[in-house]
């Protein structure tokens, strides 16, 4: 029997329509028409470049130098004595950092000068010679340096409206102006300088002072992170102040990138230590002698930028 052509067409069209529907939207379980899944996702994400992103995976070493330059006493900043010298090691792989202070009376070989107190390296050859001295003493390559002065430190701290510092013990040193009770305190520029200069009202003189200077750096780091969390635009208050009061071999753009990376450093994970040594004399002057214990600390930080707590 010959089929009617319209029936064939009807069957074809029906198959086409139903099949198309099946292919286009397969039936779901229950055969009930269910509403489509709601579209959407939350947005909550942040990223700051780490030191690894900025400088690669290698360990970074930065030298922070504080000059005792003062108007009418000693100028310029880079040709006075180094009142504070700190080697900062940053390990991008571990996400950690260390601050190693050098007592300013450390009696060490200064390239081209001879064995002298380390603070004389700045006077003898500027920040580059301090870098060279520390490189040969510790056995590291220093990537960059920062140099500031008493006035520079005061102005920087004031420009960011003070920093919080954990004062480790009560101090009363009229000569530096360090009169503090123990505990976390908000310090302005003048107070910060007094705290960082005090060595008479401390348990261990020059060693304690160097350690306290490390505490100032940690206080500044904590404040820096808090400021940026509160208002990202304050990054430039910090940077502009740093660019005005710090001498460095970094370009402004490198400073900007490093400052972003610094935001990723947790101050609680930074080890702050001072190079151990003994007290002695040389040419009638009081000096700090660095022996085997110091060599062990140097080997520790040179290895990966990190110090044992």
């Amino acid at each position: 029997m010959r089929k009617h052509p319209l029936i064939a067409l009807f069957v074809s069209v029906s198959v086409w329509a139903v099949g198309g529907a099946v292919l286009a939207d397969p039936p779901r379980a229950g055969a009930q028409a269910t509403p489509p899944a709601p579209l959407g996702h939350p947005v909550d994400s942040s990223f700051l470049p780490s030191f690894a992103d900025v400088a690669g995976r290698r360990t970074l070493f930065v030298l922070a130098i504080g000059s005792d330059a003062r108007p009418g006493v000693c100028e310029p900043v880079e040709r006075c004595l180094a009142d504070s010298i700190h080697l900062i090691g940053i390990n991008p792989r571990e996400g950690g950092a260390s601050i190693l202070g050098f007592p300013r009376d450390s009696y060490v070989p200064i390239p081209g000068v001879g064995t002298q107190k380390i603070n004389n390296a700045l006077f003898a050859g500027g920040p580059e010679l301090v870098v060279q001295t520390v490189e040969e003493l510790v056995g590291v390559d220093v990537d960059s340096y920062f140099l500031t002065s008493f006035e520079g430190l005061k102005k920087m701290v004031n420009s960011v409206e003070g920093i919080e510092v954990e004062i480790p013990y009560a101090m009363n040193d009229p000569s530096s102006g360090a009169v503090f009770s123990e505990g976390l305190q908000e310090l302005d520029g003048k107070q910060t300088l007094a705290f960082a200069r005090n060595r008479k009202s401390t348990p261990n003189g020059d060693f304690s002072r160097s350690e306290n200077q490390g505490l100032v750096m940690l206080g500044a780091l904590e404040r820096f992170r808090r400021d940026i969390r509160r208002d990202p635009f304050t990054l430039f208050t910090w940077l502009a102040s740093g660019m005005e009061h710090i001498q460095t071999d970094l370009s402004a753009m490198e400073l900007f990138q490093l400052s972003m990376a610094t935001l990723t450093v947790n101050p609680n994970k930074v080890v702050n230590r001072v190079t151990p040594g003994g007290i002695g004399t040389a040419g009638g002057a009081s000096i700090v002698t660095l022996g085997g214990e110091a060599d062990a600390v140097f080997a520790d930080i040179a290895d990966d930028g990190l110090l044992e707590p």
Partner: peptide, 23 residues
């Protein structure tokens, strides 16, 4: 956080929040 790179500005860091939602 942006830096100039090769004639234009590129984003090097960010902190974003919000939502994309139907309705």
């Amino acid at each position: 956080y942006l830096s100039p790179q090769g004639g234009s500005w590129r984003i090097g860091g960010y902190d974003v929040a919000g939502a994309v939602a139907s309705g």
